[in-house]
């Protein structure tokens, strides 16, 4: 039987895997809620992961020590926004096909970042390993409490600061989207842009804000992976997480709380792979099937429980004020 401490660790690993997905999927949410498809989340995460590694590296060289990762995080946000700006200009101002533009972002991101890595670090394929990464918060006092200690102390609270930021952002996003004038306008622009225009909402400005927020958040998501898991940026740092985030966005039905649930589910399915191996019966299951588990679980849940999810009505259409 699984003991409490293992259970606490399982929760902890789930949170580590979920954090980047929460950031990136929330990013996708802002863009798509304003009516702009963002298949480029993967590329924006690549930009973020790269910027975090480079920003932290130079902050370390400037002698910033343990606070260097925070500079890296900030760099990732800025670079993520700049990357998203390409998408915004193409799709909003020049009315380019949104899917195509997103694919282009993915292409440009890997091209530009790896090119720059080679230029900055004398032809190397990856950035130097960072000495300073984000550290997990620790609460030994709480962890030592019986029964709830392992779950609360070891499991939930003993996490990276980015995890807390991500969870707080879920609720902030919910509040902003559903309880503020800004959020109402953003949703209106994604559902019925001409109606929003009629009542005086600047459609294109709202969409620019949505896409740029998605760059900032996806950048944070990519940075999280560099600064908590890999400690450097290479071509393998981001490999498909952006697409899983898009899956979480659709799975969560374009709702911040749904996304939170979906990201936790993906994180849990990833984490449980590591724990299945603790059971004796798992030895009889081929390794490949254990690796497959998160994806199979997702398909089953989608088929059995979730079914159709409704996208924002005006998603994918450039706004043309002259069109009826």
């Amino acid at each position: 039987m699984i003991d409490l401490l293992t259970f606490g660790n399982l929760i902890n690993t789930t949170l580590v895997f979920s954090t980047a997905l929460i950031f990136a999927a929330l990013g996708g949410l802002f863009s798509e809620r304003s009516g702009i498809v963002n298949i480029g989340i993967e590329g924006l995460m690549v930009f973020g992961a790269f910027a975090a590694a480079v920003g932290t590296h130079y902050a370390e060289e400037a002698g910033m020590g343990a606070s260097a990762p925070w500079i890296g995080l900030l760099t990732a946000v800025v670079v993520g926004v700049l990357g998203a700006l390409i998408h915004a200009v193409a799709t909003i101002t020049f009315k380019a096909d949104q899917t195509i533009s997103g694919v282009v972002i993915n292409f440009l991101a890997t091209g530009i970042t790896l090119y720059l890595v080679k230029l900055l670090f004398d032809g190397a394929g990856e950035t130097p390993l960072l000495a300073n990464r984000l550290a997990k918060l620790s609460f030994p006092d709480i962890a030592s409490i019986p029964v709830i200690g392992p779950i609360l102390g070891t499991g939930l609270l003993n996490s990276y600061p980015t995890t807390f930021i991500a969870i707080i952002l879920v609720f902030v996003t919910y509040y902003v989207l559903y309880k503020t004038k800004f959020g109402l306008r953003m949703r209106a622009v994604g559902e019925h842009p001409s109606a929003a225009d009629t009542v005086g909402v600047n459609v294109n400005r709202m969409r620019y804000i949505g896409v740029m927020l998605s760059g900032a958040l996806a950048g944070l998501g990519g940075a999280t992976i560099t600064l908590t898991t890999t400690g450097l940026f290479s071509h393998t740092t981001i490999s498909g997480q952006g697409f899983i985030a898009i899956a979480a966005l659709i799975f969560g039905k374009w709702n911040p709380l749904g996304i939170f649930g979906a990201a936790l589910f993906f994180g849990f399915a990833q984490a449980i792979r590591n724990y299945v191996q603790l059971f004796e019966w798992s030895a009889s299951i081929p390794q490949d099937f254990i690796l497959m588990l998160p994806y199979v679980l997702t398909v089953i849940v989608l088929v059995v429980a979730v079914g159709k999810s409704r996208a924002p009505a005006a998603l994918g259409e450039a706004y043309d004020p002259g069109k009826r």
């Binding site: 498909g240 697409f243 899983i244 898009i246 899956a247 659709i250 799975f251 497959m292 998160p294 994806y295 199979v296 997702t298 398909v299 989608l302 088929v303 979730v306 079914g307 159709k308 999810s309």
Partner: peptide
């Protein structure tokens, strides 16, 4: 179910 999400999952499977 949206084919984008299933094809992403089926890739990994």
């Amino acid at each position: 179910v949206n084919e984008v999400i299933t094809t992403i999952m089926l890739n990994w499977i």
